[in-house]
């Protein structure tokens, strides 16, 4: 195995009851990189994330910096891996600061409460996520974009090595998708995290991710690197999951090289 890989999933099989969803999925991730997980609905993206964070029974193994994640208890796993759902399941009125402070739970004793220094760190994380001064706001009154940023701040204080995000863009508008994911990108690069992000929008994934894994019917059929692979090669690979399309390299207003994905309208 290449030692530069920080996380490796090896031969993962998982499902719900008798229905097998994931079939022998293997891949590796590097530190400081965001890897996008692309696939049609039902291809097993969310199942893969749940299997990695041990929420779903599975065979095969996941190694994080040499440690088998399957051997860790709930607390130690939470100290090394964080999971960000599509929408956080916080349904009560609770302050933004309290939501972020939940991130310290793995390092706090059962009966202990966060100390002043941890509150300060939570406020700093909120500021880094772009929510400075909002610590006393009610989480329920935040916009969907702000909620995701608040959860991102919680992930910052968790300070885990592996971040798993399940379609963090699903409830966000065009601007906020980029805003939230660029914040994530900065966090991953600056703090040398490893991130696996499940995304619906391949255009966004091509813009943000260092590597993409393509999932079809529970199998990892291919991977691509947007900054290195030729557009024609990537186009052929993306066609396998999205059908007829064109991938074009062009330049945006700032002269930066970008990839644009166009669906083939005649196919519908």
């Amino acid at each position: 195995m290449d030692s530069s890989f920080f996380f490796t999933a090896d031969q993962l099989n998982a499902g719900y009851g008798k229905r097998q969803v994931l079939r022998e999925v293997s891949f590796s991730l590097r530190q400081g990189c965001i890897t996008g997980l692309l696939g049609a609905n039902g291809s097993g993206k969310s199942t893969l994330l749940k299997a990695i964070c041990n929420q779903l029974p599975h065979t095969g193994e996941c190694l994080l910096n040499g440690q088998r994640l399957e051997d860790l208890n709930i607390r130690r796993l939470a100290g090394r891996v964080s999971y960000i759902p599509q929408r956080s399941g916080i349904t009560l009125s609770v302050s933004v600061l309290d939501v972020v402070l939940m991130g310290f739970n793995p390092v706090l004793g059962l009966f202990r409460n966060p100390v002043q220094e941890q509150k300060k760190r939570a406020e700093e994380a909120l500021a880094a996520a772009g929510l400075a001064g909002m610590q006393e706001r009610d989480y329920q009154t935040l916009s969907e974009g702000e909620k995701q940023l608040c959860i991102l701040a919680r992930t910052m204080v968790e300070d885990t090595e592996l971040l798993l995000l399940d379609e963090p863009d699903s409830a966000l508008d065009f601007h906020n998708r980029y805003y939230v994911l660029m914040k994530l990108r900065r966090l991953v690069q600056e703090q040398k995290k490893t991130a696996l992000v499940c995304l619906h929008d391949p255009g966004l994934a091509l813009d943000i991710c260092d590597q993409l894994l393509l999932l079809k019917e529970g199998r990892c059929i291919s991977s691509l690197r947007p900054d290195q692979d030729a557009p024609q090669v990537m186009e052929e690979k993306l066609k396998q999951i999205y059908g007829p399309l064109s991938l074009i390299r062009c330049h945006d207003g700032q002269g930066q090289s970008r990839l644009v994905l166009l669906s083939d309208l005649s196919a519908f």
Binding site: Q55, I74, R75, S88, G89, I90, M102, N105, P106, L108
Partner: peptide, 19 residues
């Protein structure tokens, strides 16, 4: 503090280290 953590969906709560 654990009571507050239980107010979050089970999966999310577990990933915050709550048994």
């Amino acid at each position: 503090r654990q009571v507050l953590l239980l107010s979050v969906e089970d999966e999310e709560s577990r990933m915050l280290g709550v048994d």
